[in-house]
């Protein structure tokens, strides 16, 4: 395997894992409130969360530039105060992946939160556990299958992210060039089809392993969910 292929794979995995790890806690909190409470404007928030699912990723990337770019709403503030630039860095690639995969993660977590019998949480509180302890000891283990499938789905989506990344993070080798960007770049150069094919195989393998792993874990977890 050539060095550049290895670097590309490692960058992809790193960005995928970081994006998913940062997304999960946010997704749990959002899913919890969306699944449990009714409030004004809930549908609007739901729409905003799901927007990246239907928006062309390139558009999402452009919106991210408008927000985090050097002249963007948040980006300019950050640049003027700290000198930190977000757009066209690895951070931007992580943010792109986060935004695009977020709705998928929220979906799978929210379904499992809505499936929990809330009376179990009340029962936990009558036994002396406060809300946070109940969340840790009852809610979290019961949504674990949703968390895992959310993690896998989010990771897989991040690995496949192209449009938002190339727009907002660029296609910088060794920095933001992930597997899909690399495959695209290699196909532009005559004679580099072999490297592209190798990356395709690796990406199929990673995706397959992720899906396989999640179904094995889910099967194990579902043993005690029978008759729940």
């Amino acid at each position: 395997m050539s060095e550049s292929v290895l670097v590309t794979v490692l960058i992809s995995i790193k960005i995928g894992i970081l994006a998913t790890v940062f997304n999960i806690p946010i997704a749990v909190i959002i899913s919890y409130f969306m699944g449990r409470y009714n409030f004004k404007g809930k549908q609007i928030i739901d729409g905003i969360i799901n927007l990246p699912l239907v928006l062309p990723p390139v558009t999402t990337g452009y919106i991210l530039i408008l927000i985090f770019g050097k002249y963007g709403i948040i980006g300019s503030l950050l640049f003027n105060l700290t000198g930190i630039r977000i757009a066209f860095t690895q951070t931007a690639a992580v943010i792109s992946s986060m935004v695009v995969s977020f709705p998928l993660i929220v979906r799978s977590i929210r379904i499992s939160i809505e499936m929990i019998d809330q009376k179990l949480e009340v029962a936990s509180m009558t036994l002396g556990a406060n809300k946070i302890e109940t969340f840790i000891r009852i809610t979290t283990p019961l949504i674990l299958p949703g968390l895992i499938s959310g993690f896998i789905l989010g990771f897989a989506r991040s690995m496949g992210e192209f449009g938002a990344t190339i727009t907002f993070a660029g296609n910088i080798e060794g920095e933001t060039r992930t597997i899909p960007l690399s495959v695209y770049s290699l196909l532009q150069v005559p004679g580099r089809e072999n490297s592209a094919a190798l990356l395709v195989v690796i990406s199929v393998l990673i995706s397959f392993l992720a899906m396989f792993g999640s179904s094995v874990i889910n099967k194990k977890l579902s043993s005690w969910r029978v008759k729940q």
């Binding site: 179990l120 029962a123 936990s124 009558t126 556990a129 005690w224």
Partner: peptide, 29 residues
């Protein structure tokens, strides 16, 4: 709040925690 009342309650649908063993259910509180 519920968790500070010191009242034991057994619900109609016994509401055992499905992910815990009987021992861990018993010792939960």
């Amino acid at each position: 709040p519920i968790h500070k009342r010191g009242i034991g309650i057994v619900f109609q649908e016994n509401l055992l925690f499905p992910h815990l063993t009987i021992r861990d259910n018993l010792l939960y509180g």
